[in-house]
């Protein structure tokens, strides 16, 4: 079995790399895949918090690299899904504690026994990014419909294209607010795709449920009702090669909108 190593990156911070990693990882595991999440954000780790696994971490990726433990010992199994495990970053060290070669080696080892290895990349384009990308053959570029995030995503895509190991990369548009797009206050999905001329793998709507799910340490894909959860589940299906149409995010007309429409209809 040769697993796929996918790096989840963005360039800009705060666009939802870690949330995306946690959710896609959980969704893929729920579909029966063996998944390992690697947090490469050494010194600013968060992935364990989102999965609610903080209290289970004994060994981190730095311990593996420095041979204080075996790779298998450092993998923390998810509370609910035995198919999902996490290789946590060390909180008390920094990005230079691990080299790109070492991470590549870890990915190679994990590939043998898992279907998917998702690498959560830190923000920036320095050592942390270079490490995270080293072992990956595919990439998901996370961005939000904001000028700054799109600009940074463009930079990242340029760097990814320059890497021979990266065979394919896809775009994931996060925190989309259909209402704002409707009012022409936010870049539309099509706009972003056009600017970046990249294939889209998913569109995730802005969802306040993400905040609660983060605080609870429970990925939102486990919430069957949440729209964002559904969007992430669809992304997981698409990663597995299924052809699933994008979620319909067009805003529904509320009662107040209808009333407003009466006025405009009457006066125009």
């Amino acid at each position: 079995m040769a697993g796929r190593v996918i790096v989840i990156t963005s360039g800009k911070g705060g666009v939802g790399k870690t949330t995306t990693s946690a959710n896609i990882g959980t969704a893929l595991a729920k579909l029966g895949n063996k998944v390992v999440l690697i947090d490469t954000d050494i010194g600013l780790r968060n992935l364990d918090l989102l999965l609610g696994l903080e209290n289970r971490i004994v060994y981190t990726i730095v311990d593996v690299v420095e041979e204080r433990c075996k790779l298998k010992q450092a993998l923390v199994k998810d509370k609910k899904n035995p198919n999902l495990s996490l290789l946590a970053a060390a909180q008390t060290r920094d990005k230079t504690s691990v080299t790109a070669e070492q991470l590549k080696d870890i990915c190679e080892q994990l590939k043998k026994k898992n279907d998917f290895i998702l690498v959560d990349c830190p923000a920036g384009i320095e050592q942390g990014f270079q490490n995270a990308v080293a072992g990956a053959s595919e990439a998901i570029v996370v961005t939000t419909p904001e000028m700054s995030a799109v600009r940074d995503a463009d930079r990242i895509i340029g760097l990814l294209e320059a890497k021979e190991e990266i065979e394919s990369y896809k775009l994931l548009l996060n925190r989309v607010r259909p209402q704002l797009i409707e009012q022409n206050d936010m870049m539309s999905v099509e706009d972003v795709c056009e600017i970046l001329s990249t294939e889209l793998i998913g569109v995730i709507p802005e969802d306040t449920g993400i905040i609660t799910s983060t605080n609870k340490g429970e990925p939102i894909v486990n919430d069957e009702d949440a729209l964002a959860g559904k969007a992430y589940r669809n992304v997981a299906h698409r990663i597995m090669g299924e052809d699933i149409p994008l979620l319909d995010l067009t805003p529904k007309e509320t009662f107040l909108d209808k009333i407003k429409n009466f006025f405009t209809k009457g006066k125009v």
Binding site: L49, G52, E54, N55, R56, I57, V58, K79, G217
Partner: peptide
């Protein structure tokens, strides 16, 4: 504490009381 270790015994917070 997230984890409380004494000598060779390692314990973690129970998930039901896992308040950061």
């Amino acid at each position: 504490p997230i984890q409380l270790r004494i000598a060779n015994l390692y314990s973690r917070r129970n998930d039901t009381v896992n308040v950061p």
